[in-house]
Computed example of a mutant assay.
Amino acid sequence: MKSYPLQFKPEMKERVWGGRALEQFGLDLPEGPIGEGWMIGDHPNGTTKVLNGELAGLGLDEVRERYGKTIFGTKAAAAEGSRFPLLIKLLDCNDDLSIQVHPDNDYKELPAGELGKTEMWYVLDAKPGAKIIYGLKPGMTREVFAESIRDNRIMDSLQEVEVQAGDSFYIPAGTVHALCAGVLVAEIQQNSDTTYRLYDYDRLGLDGKPRELHVEHSLNVTAYGDSGATRMKTDIDAANSWLRLAASRYFIVEKGVSEGVWKLATSPESFTILVICDGTGTLDWADGSLPAKRGDCFLLPADLGEYSLNGGLTVLRSYLP
């Protein structure tokens, strides 16, 4: 088989805080409030299937089993039988998400087979005045934080940040955070679905029952002090060049803006994931071409080699460090 860029049928997730904004990307949404589109995923809670080419109809798990080292690269294939290391999402926050925190890989009470969760957000769109919760206030200790939760004063302990389209946030495990209403983001994260909720506004879930909180787990995994979280504006000074947004032991994420023909290449060490944030154009390689538009996500095999972005595209590029 000759390698080619893979596109997948997203797994749509109904969430109490979701809406219908993902329809703007031409995605087919089921009924209800859809908060998450899992665009590229290989997880027990959602595995995407290939839409195009010779591998059409195969789940990403089946692609991994058949062509893991060839397509995913030597770094991803280092652990025999391991799942695809990243999970790529688009999130529509029609309402506030719960105040939450994620564990790291070393937390002893992780669910069996699950990983920790370090992630990053790129803001695709934000309504005027939209904000996020991003970390604890300086000097916060576990004891003071726990007291604020007991006294129903958790918001007094948290930092709020107003956001605009183009903002980028790196969120290492242990960073208390929450997306708030009116924000649409692309999320690149470890392949994990473990979230510990600290506070959920006394909200009922889709089943009409109060949503479960995980206060003790949350207090255990929260980083008190510097969690390593960073944020930045991402204006691009020059076309056809990369601006690094996040770098961790799990992923590197960069932003670029193509102009004309931008010639690039994959590495045999790692796959490349492209998320199209804006614009229209094409993704071309030696054996073919695919249209590219806002909201599209592509998995480029490690052995694809040379490819190019053509037209005016704002793109996120993710790969393994």
Rank of each mutant, 00 (worst) to 15 (best):
A173Q: 02
L179V: 07
H217C: 11
H214M: 01
T194C: 13
T194P: 00
S218M: 11
V215A: 06
A223V: 08
Q190W: 00
E216P: 08
D193F: 05
Y201G: 02
I171Q: 04
S192Q: 12
V176P: 12
D202C: 10
V176N: 04
A186Q: 06
S218H: 09
A178S: 07
I171E: 00
G205M: 12
T175K: 05
N191Y: 08
D200H: 14
A186I: 09
L204F: 08
D207N: 15
E212Q: 15
R203W: 02
D200E: 11
G208D: 11
D167S: 09
Y201I: 12
V185H: 04
D167T: 06
E216W: 01
P172K: 12
P172D: 07
A223G: 03
H177F: 07
H217R: 15
A181M: 11
H217D: 14
T195I: 14
V183T: 15
L204Q: 13
N191V: 11
T194Y: 08
S192W: 11
L213A: 03
Y224N: 01
I171V: 15
Y224W: 03
L184I: 08
D167W: 00
I188Y: 06
Y196P: 00
G225C: 05
L179C: 07
G208A: 13
V221L: 03
E216F: 06
G174L: 02
S218V: 13
L204G: 10
Y199T: 03
I188W: 01
D167C: 05
H214G: 09
L219G: 06
V176W: 03
Y196Q: 07
G225R: 00
G225W: 01
Y199W: 03
G182R: 14
F169Y: 15
V176G: 05
D167A: 09
L213T: 11
L213F: 12
A223Q: 00
N220Q: 13
Q190D: 07
S168Y: 08
Y170S: 13
T195P: 00
V221K: 04
A181R: 15
S218D: 10
D193W: 03
K209W: 08
P210W: 02
C180M: 15
Y199V: 10
Y224C: 03
N191M: 12
A223T: 08
C180L: 15
Q189Y: 01
R197L: 10
A181P: 00
R203Q: 04
V183A: 09
D202V: 09
E187R: 04
K209G: 08
N220R: 13
V176F: 05
L213I: 14
G182C: 10
E216M: 13
Y224E: 05
H217A: 13
V183H: 05
H177M: 14
L204W: 09
Y170G: 09
Q189K: 02
L219N: 01
G205I: 11
S218T: 13
L179N: 08
D193K: 06
A223N: 04
